[in-house]
Computed example of a mutant assay.
Amino acid sequence: MDDLASFLRTRRRRVNPTSVGICVDNRRRVEGLRREEVAHLSGVSVDYYVRLEQGRATQPSEQVLDALARVFDLDETEREHLHRLTRRPRRRAKAPGGRVRPELLRVLDMVTHAPALIMNHRLDVLAANRLAGLLLGRPIPGLNTARHIFLDEAERGLYADWETCTLDVVGHLRLAAGKYPEDPGLASLIGELAMGSERFRRLWARAEVRARTHGRKAYQHPLVGLLELHQENFALPDESGMELLVLSALAGSPAEDGLRLLASLGTDSGDVHPTMNARLS
């Protein structure tokens, strides 16, 4: 699903030669840096770097990785991903299960004024509170937000910043693929998205990685209009691969009024109690 060679190739092509002190002219036809330029800037032989990009050298030293990260101007998330791709643990990482503890469901039940959900590394929604169910407007069991965003065109309008959402989803799945390369469920999901979405295929080929922990999230809800919310992601303990996501509205904002209206509308059409999916393996 992911490998060191493809990551290096995409990072090399992303670098502007002038940003690392290389003069270029109109005759240059190479996108980004040449392999020999990367080798020179990182202090390794051209032959060794070529073998890295061809997948024939898979365990470079920490010093080489740090040098490549510097040349490619990788951010912290990308640096961690690069190092993870070269690690070969004695036992392959097992994909986390999908069982949500009852105590976490009680926490969701306590969050009454903001949509809140629990998701796994595949972006399956494992549980959600009442307001999150009303926001998403569909049953929680079986919901995968990657499929929802890329494959369900009828629901695309719900995401006011759809293009940004697609970048976040692909970046997250890239990170997950690096952490759990032997997860068949994740491989199947990525294949399904690639088959069904041309945009997913293009973004996946860029090998971008993202770890979004907080930020703006805007929804264009069909009943209450635009909801500009703030998303906070909380990684759950015990290496479960799960995250708690809470979408809050600024006090006194139109979004707060919108959530209040959404909650009141929900009481007329049936409650959406915190729901836990069946075990996902």
Rank of each mutant, 00 (worst) to 15 (best):
N16A: 15
N16Y: 12
P17T: 06
P17F: 08
T18S: 14
T18D: 14
T18F: 13
G21C: 06
G21N: 10
I22Y: 08
C23N: 15
V24E: 12
D25P: 07
R27E: 12
R28D: 08
R28C: 08
R28G: 07
R29P: 04
E31Q: 14
E31H: 14
E31R: 10
E31W: 12
L33A: 06
E36I: 06
A39L: 00
A39K: 01
H40P: 08
L41A: 03
L41I: 00
S42W: 03
G43P: 05
V44K: 00
S45A: 04
V46G: 11
V46H: 14
D47C: 05
D47W: 09
D47A: 11
D47R: 09
Y49F: 05
V50T: 09
V50F: 05
R51H: 11
E53S: 04
E53T: 02
E53W: 12
E53Q: 02
Q54Y: 07
Q54H: 10
T58Y: 11
Q59W: 05
E62V: 12
E62L: 12
L65Q: 11
L65E: 05
L65M: 08
L65F: 08
A67Q: 09
L68A: 06
L68Q: 01
V71G: 10
F72V: 00
F72G: 04
F72R: 02
F72C: 07
F72Q: 08
D75V: 03
E78H: 05
E78S: 13
E80Q: 14
H81I: 03
H81M: 02
R84T: 09
L85V: 05
R87A: 13
R88C: 07
R88S: 09
R88H: 13
P89T: 03
P89F: 09
A93G: 13
A93P: 15
K94W: 14
A95F: 08
A95P: 08
A95S: 13
P96W: 06
G97V: 00
G97D: 06
G98L: 00
R99W: 14
R99I: 10
R99H: 15
V100Q: 04
V100K: 00
V100L: 00
P102C: 01
P102L: 00
E103G: 15
L104R: 07
L105E: 12
R106P: 10
V107W: 11
V107L: 14
T112F: 10
H113C: 07
H113K: 11
P115M: 04
A116E: 01
L117R: 09
I118T: 02
